[in-house]
């Protein structure tokens, strides 16, 4: 039997909320699929569009940017800049035909281990039927 498609997800997690929330999911021994490899960044505001395009080019099937809820940013307002920037990147990616499901953003606080788990589970679930991302992927 052919092996089930396992999407590769690159997740940019801010250090203070989302990465800490992901830590809490671990501490609470919540279970979610191992498809995500997190990259800890200082703030969701530091995620450059170049990172996102690059992850897709390198073969990511999905990219997640996750930061603190509005008002909770460790850096006061970095997540607000992220929200605007990511909205633009998302619109652009969909306009050129990337499936909208492949690029997601979430607010996950340090206390939201459960939410992080759900975000990842749902992301993997939605990516599986889409199959591998080839639209922006580097030719092999």
């Amino acid at each position: 039997m052919a092996e089930e498609f396992e999407p590769k997800i690159v997740a940019f997690l801010c250090k203070w909320c989302s990465s800490a929330g992901s830590d809490l999911a671990g501490v609470s021994r919540m279970q979610y699929p191992p498809n995500v490899v997190p990259i800890q960044v200082m703030c969701s505001g530091s995620v450059s569009p170049l990172y996102i395009f690059n992850a897709f080019k390198k073969g990511a099937d999905g990219v997640l940017v996750s930061g603190c809820h509005p008002g909770d940013c460790h850096y006061i307002e970095g997540n607000y800049y992220a929200r605007r920037r990511i909205a633009l990147v998302k619109e652009l990616l969909e306009f050129v035909g990337l499936e909208p499901e492949r690029f997601q953003m979430s607010w996950v606080s340090a206390a939201e281990g459960t939410k992080y788990t759900e975000v990842i589970k749902d992301f993997v679930d939605v990516l599986k039927p889409l199959g591998p991302q080839s639209h922006l992927r580097r030719e092999q």
């Binding site: 590769k8 490899v37 992850a55």
Partner: peptide, 18 residues
């Protein structure tokens, strides 16, 4: 930012996608 430069993130994306 020192020690979280785009160069570093670039390599980390590589490693993450693997």
């Amino acid at each position: 930012v020192k020690n979280v430069t785009p160069q570093q993130i670039y390599e980390m994306i590589d490693a993450s996608v693997g």
